[in-house]
Simulated scan of single mutants.
Amino acid sequence: MTDGTWAAPGRVNLIGEHTDYNEGFVMPFALPHTARAKGARRPDRLLRLSSAQFDGEPVELSLDDLTPGSVPGWAAYPAGVAWALERAGHRLAGADLAIDSDVPTGAGLSSSAALEVVTALALSDLNGLGLPPESLARLSQQAENDFVGMPCGILDQMASASCEAGHVLFLDTRDLSRRQVPFAMAREGLRLLVVDTRVKHSHADGEYATRRAECETGAAALGVPFLRDIPFAELSSALSRLPDPTIRRRVRHIVTENRRVERVVDLLDAGRAREIGPILTEGHASLRDDFEISCPELDLVVSTAVEAGAHGARMTGGGFGGSAIVLVDEDAVEATTKAITTAFAAAGHATPRTFEAVPSPGARRVGA
């Protein structure tokens, strides 16, 4: 219950896109980029929020008056977490939270989940709740779903709350069972690059919600609770029962994407990280063609990287912009980065931001 500073990371999803709200498999890992909260307990029921990324006076909110839709802008995320904690039966003391973050916003790297999870951890510790990672993640997801109004799955929050350094998280989103899979890229002479296209994704415009609704329509038509329940071996039969071509494409992506996660896990367990590259590229084609959530800039990153000799590449995150990941040999980082930058310039796109993704630890207390 002492004052302190906490951190929660953004994430990259190695494989398993849009499978989380279909109760499927995902494989994220945490980035070194974090949201940090310096927190102090208050004797009243006031939540006082400030952010280094947003100018203006601190936002002051009464814990007794929080309702969905009542808090605009960035403060809705931490306020939603406090609301979810209270709704779960945890009566909170007031708190001062000063937020700072170096997780790129709008880049598909889960800046919002990092903000939610760091708030959940800070409030848990300040109130002596001792909540485990899965509880922090569920409450954070509830905040985003029901308070902010974004119908995301739980991938981002679980990654931020529970990833471990040097590992990728193999997560079953149905029951949150999970395994930390070693991802020793350096040992195999590999690097994973994140290429931020600087195209801001537009989840809030309804396309993300539309994809989720289409998946639910497909599951209902096939008589299963979630698309996770369609075995890969039965995909052809399932598709033949769907008259709507759009729903067929959505179903095909989810079922094949779950299978791609299983294939990547098998290769990493066997110490064959280099061989996951083509599966990443295959996943991008599915997201582009069957789920239809890519954009020209993301497609250009993938095609240019593969032509330059990368083992594989794909968009990562919710889509409609954001970032792509590229698996390359360590001695090809500079040449691949240059090829992508040159291709963007030739196409008239803004210069992308590229950095190396290093599997990093999840949410934790970092100081007094």
Rank of each mutant, 00 (worst) to 15 (best):
D269S: 11
T2R: 14
L227M: 06
T105F: 15
E257R: 03
P243F: 00
A310S: 03
T281K: 06
E116I: 13
G321I: 06
T197A: 09
G73I: 08
A219M: 03
E207T: 06
V118G: 02
L280K: 07
G149K: 15
C163F: 02
H90A: 00
F226C: 11
A114T: 07
P132G: 13
D125C: 03
P104F: 09
E257C: 11
A107E: 08
R178H: 03
Q141P: 07
S51Y: 10
Y21A: 10
A350N: 13
E57V: 06
P361Y: 04
G69V: 01
A143Q: 10
P245V: 04
T197L: 10
L31Q: 05
A93M: 12
H203K: 14
A270K: 09
S160A: 15
I276A: 04
L242E: 01
V12S: 00
T105V: 06
E262G: 13
D196R: 00
S62A: 14
S294E: 02
V71D: 05
K200H: 09
E307P: 02
G24C: 07
G94S: 03
T197K: 01
T354A: 12
R191P: 10
F183V: 08
A220K: 06
L227R: 01
G283E: 02
S236C: 11
G10A: 10
V168S: 14
V224N: 00
D290M: 02
A285N: 15
S50Q: 12
G94M: 06
E275D: 13
P104E: 13
V302K: 00
A161Y: 04
S101E: 13
A82D: 09
P43T: 07
V118W: 02
W6D: 02
E307D: 14
G80N: 08
R263H: 07
A107Y: 03
A159L: 10
E297R: 00
H349W: 11
L227C: 03
R198T: 02
D175P: 12
Y21C: 12
R353L: 14
L192M: 07
V358I: 14
E334N: 15
E86C: 14
S111E: 12
D146A: 09
D289K: 15
I154L: 07
V326D: 00
T256H: 01
R248P: 13
R187Y: 06
M185W: 06
L193H: 03
G94Q: 08
G283M: 07
D229I: 04
A161E: 04
L171H: 05
G206S: 06
V103T: 04
V26Y: 10
A335P: 09
R187Q: 13
F170I: 01
E216A: 01
E297L: 11
I340F: 15
A88F: 05
R45I: 13
T19K: 01
S140Q: 06
M185P: 11
S162P: 09
